[in-house]
Design a protein around this nucleic acid. Structure first.
Lengths: 331, 331
DNA sequence: AATTGATTTGTAACCGGTTACATTTGGCCT
DNA sequence: AGGCCAAATGTAACCGGTTACAAATCAATT
């Protein structure tokens, strides 16, 4: 394997000149540059980045902690992260934690041992349960929630939920079920707050019987459907806290003989691609997933480079998308 | 930041002893071990892996080239890769190429510059167009096709396609459309061969009018649907080469007023999670996605470690899953 | 007590770059 | 020609580990 010394030997200059020819060519004479470039070509030299990074005390890579890579929303956020990272010359190390905090711990070690410069956390922050940045490890929450104790990028989850429920009410719905995440999930809590705000503002009020907890998977949506289907006083609409659960729920409702959306409206959250292709296509909240990824990477980069953050919380705009899953209630 | 020299100073031993205490404790006396461990704790020492890897001339990470991370099948393969990699102490660097070969080239540089030890390629190999391993760069195809000129892990795509079409024929279908990938896509070609083999073996024969090319996205499935819907002599079943296109196609057919599956059977390929939740749920081929990922990582690791490969091509079993999208044709 | 071999420990070179500092080269002016 | 300053170049230290080799220590044996 060729190294800088071999290049210097072939070119007949010192290693310092070779190094400068590569990183600061303006400090090297024309003649030397020519010799160096020719030698690089001749020996097929490729600089050893491990050596360079080691010297620079910078790994030029970050870790992204994702609870589940098969979740399309997360996958899309990661695309954004990756896009921004590549532009800045950073690598993205994947940390699929499978919702295990011991795995999260494992990946944190990559930063402590200098294999990565910072962490992007895709799991929203749960006080007391989640990893917090320690020892000055740069860390940013990429699709965060309210009250995250470190820099985060997010949308206004409560506001989006309110907008959805407001819309359902404006369509004439009065009994609106909610398919939430697990009770300690922060996204779930933020969105639940929006749901309650909307109901309370219009005087309908919150009815705990209409709340079902899932876990953001299609399977849990399916289970929730049978609960809703069996209720004596069934809702006419369901606000699901993500698209996957909504899709699972639709299937469950249909197989219970309930027509969707005629007898039951349903909304999602995230606007994954499948939301457009479900039957019926979902009314949902389009999160700027790639943008969340890009912005959070850039925020992390500022942290890594030791800059002062202008703001510790960035709230990006979402979009409310109306499709065919939310007509007026029957009769 | 504490380093090994500081630990050695605090422990009152040499740096060599500290290094040995960490990597080969059996070569160090009890007394020294105790002193070293105490010192490590005292100064909060974490070894600098960049330095270690640099010395070892091993990055302990690999790059995975994925055409599109938002493709659920790929995402699942990557989960398998990541799982196996973590067990072996390797990091996984993400290379979302967005189907651009210049980006692929970019990521290959990571290996040439020693930031990674090898490449896992998720895009199947197209002769003349695809990256081939050069300069002895370790590379494995993780969900390969036939005739890949470097080690690959795959399923029997042609056989799986044959099995699907055989099943449709056994259900009584005679006109079976095929929703393929782009003409130069190797998966598409392998599966098309199976489709033709099945039709020819049963004497039905191949009818080019029944072939529509898509690009494995739901959008292209939607477009294909309008083509099938407008045909004067419409097929009674469609073999789609992945689940996404099938799901898009179903939506297109329905909105053209064709009942699915009563008037039109449809099958998918891959068995992504959504296949179970589409309406109707898809008959499809379950690829062992995570296993493809794990096996290909382990193969790559052997290559990296310079072992002789026992086999250059590994074919894993698939599973044929019958769901409700493929009843007998009408009448 | 001296000899021997095994075990433990320390010194220093090395991996491949970057860069501070010293030295050489070169152009320009008097 | 000599002096001066800027530009170009070279030498060597450094980043933080690992490890070959030499040296020191120790236990066992004569």
């Amino acid at each position: 394997m060729s190294n800088i010394r071999e290049v210097s030997r072939v070119a007949g200059v010192s290693i310092a000149t070779v190094s400068r020819a590569i990183s600061t060519p303006e400090k090297v004479s024309e003649a030397a540059l020519k010799k160096v470039y020719a030698a690089i070509k001749e020996v097929g030299y490729r600089p050893n980045m491990m050596a360079r990074n080691f010297r620079a005390i910078r790994a030029y890579s970050i870790v992204v902690l994702v609870p589940n890579l098969s979740n399309l929303f997360f996958a899309t956020v990661i695309r954004g992260i990756e896009d921004a990272a590549q532009q800045k010359g950073y690598g993205v190390l994947l940390g699929d934690t499978r919702d295990s905090s011991s795995r999260e711990q494992e990946y944190t070690r990559l930063v402590e041992t200098r294999q990565a410069d910072g962490i992007l956390q895709l799991r929203p922050h749960t006080p007391g349960k989640s990893l917090e940045p320690h020892n000055g490890i740069p860390m940013v929450s990429a699709c965060g929630c309210e009250n995250t104790p470190y820099p985060s990028v997010r949308i206004d989850n409560a506001g989006a939920a309110r907008e959805i429920v407001d819309y359902l009410i404006s369509q004439g719905h009065r009994r609106i079920g909610v398919l939430a995440g697990l009770p300690d999930n922060p996204h779930s809590n933020d969105r639940l707050r929006g749901y309650r705000q909307s109901l309370e503002a219009t005087g309908i009020g919150f009815d705990p019987d209409l709340l079902v907890n899932g876990d953001f998977t299609m399977g849990s949506g399916l289970m929730a459907a049978s609960h809703f289907a069996r209720m004596k006083e069934r809702p006419t609409a369901i606000f699901s806290m993500n698209d996957e659960m909504a899709i699972g729920c639709i299937q469950g409702l249909k197989s219970a003989g309930i027509r969707v959306p005629e007898e039951m409206s349903i909304t999602g959250f995230d606007d994954i691609e499948f939301a457009r292709y479900s039957d019926p296509p979902l009314t949902t909240i389009a999160q700027p997933a790639e943008e969340l990824g890009r912005t959070s990477f850039n925020t992390l980069l500022e942290l890594i480079e030791g800059k002062e953050l202008r703001q510790t919380e960035t709230v990006l705009p979402y979009e409310f998308v109306v499709r065919r899953s939310t007509p007026a209630p029957p009769r």
